[in-house]
Design a binder for these strands. Structure first.
Lengths: 209, 209
DNA sequence: CCGAAAACAGACCAAACGGTATGTATAGAA
DNA sequence: TTCTATACATACCGTTTGGTCTGTTTTCGG
């Protein structure tokens, strides 16, 4: 495995991610990517069979790092607390810190972007995106179920619904954040969701982090 | 004002809306639109100076009908109840009925789509989208403020935050709905948000519709 | 240090793109 | 009926697009 080639490939992927987040998939041309990544056309088509191939690899690469990031934050929260509710609240506050990081200005979710441009893509990529979103949701379902099992909710609720609501609120927050160009919007949605959880599980004890 | 021309123009706008919701702005070519709308290139460029001009007019046309629709649902809810909380819950259930209407398969929000492709557009269009989203949010802020003034919330909360959370939850619901291709997702998010409101304002009376 | 595979560079291409030019049909006011 | 502005239709144009082809450099095991 040569290192040089993998480095270029990652340069291309990163450049494409940045461009796609601002211009969409169809709105990003191969020449745009070459300029942004500083590679030649030959290099590009050496690593990717086509633009569609790049799109697919980008999606899988993005999903991999994305899910891994969430797992890490959750693992830290689980290590810090015993009660699943405390773990959850810790996860959310840590996630808010991540969201409020002033680096990487144009925040966004590539799954969201994808769903609004899905006509250009193959069916197996559609399935992959749906599966990835489900994996992401499943992570939360598990945790919410633990909370529900331990603390009686003030109103009947399912773990699945709570998980889906959290994902929705984050996705929607990103859209508002982009539209208004105010950095804190998504984190605020997470906060607001925490408030909901605290109302929903009033018996859950709250400890200092 | 001749009727014939306006009719063709609306045909083009409707066709573009349908295409854009599946392929994005950049991913929809003028020829695509001509095919979908069944008009000639001459007709198209008679009504629109450029593709960018169409994009702007489409956005304004969409925003107009969109906001009007929300105002109508809210007006009906306000006519049906006296208590702002009842009005709000009625509004949400009516909105859920609208969302669950099996017509118009590919649901989506053009503002969301826009924010993920905004690099192609002019600044005044960016401002217009932001303003429209703010108008939409402001509608809810007013109503939430009335509720807060009348019923003490179980946890301190601002009308603005609640309004933004609702918009977020709907936008996010649309994304999940598109990704999973299950029609009820967005309506479920609205339901879940209603649950939150009922926990937040426990003193609010609930009447039968 | 050699040879072969990987990694690149850049000229080139056909098709699709947004847009124009020019001509024709049509509708309504005078 | 005639005049004129609107409403189209279509051939055409320059540019950009995704992709190919050919040739050169770099890398690395033997």
């Amino acid at each position: 495995m040569s290192r040089k080639g993998d480095l270029s490939k990652e340069r291309i992927l990163k450049a494409t991610k940045a461009l796609v987040m601002r211009k969409g998939f169809a709105g990003t041309s191969v020449d745009d990517i070459l300029r942004e990544a500083g590679v030649s056309k030959g290099a590009f088509f050496h690593h990717f069979r086509s633009k569609a191939d790049l799109t697919e690899q980008l999606m899988r690469w993005y999903a991999d790092t994305d899910i891994r990031m969430f797992r890490e934050i959750l693992a830290r929260a689980e290590a810090a607390h015993d009660d699943p509710m405390d773990q959850l609240l810790q996860f959310l506050t840590d996630f808010e810190v991540y969201l409020s990081d002033p680096k990487q200005p144009p925040r966004g979710c590539m799954y969201a972007l994808y769903t609004y441009e899905d006509d250009h893509f193959e069916n197996d990529l559609k399935e992959f995106v749906a599966e990835t979103l489900q994996t992401w949701t499943a992570m939360y379902i598990r945790k919410f179920q633990e909370v529900i099992d331990l603390h009686t909710p003030a109103k009947p609720v399912t773990a699945k619904r709570l998980a889906e609501m959290f994902v929705s609120v984050i996705e929607g927050g990103l859209i508002l954040q982009r539209a208004y160009q105010v950095p804190g919007m998504t984190a605020r949605q997470s906060e607001q969701f925490r408030d909901y959880l605290e109302l929903l599980f009033p018996t859950a004890t709250r400890k200092a982090a």
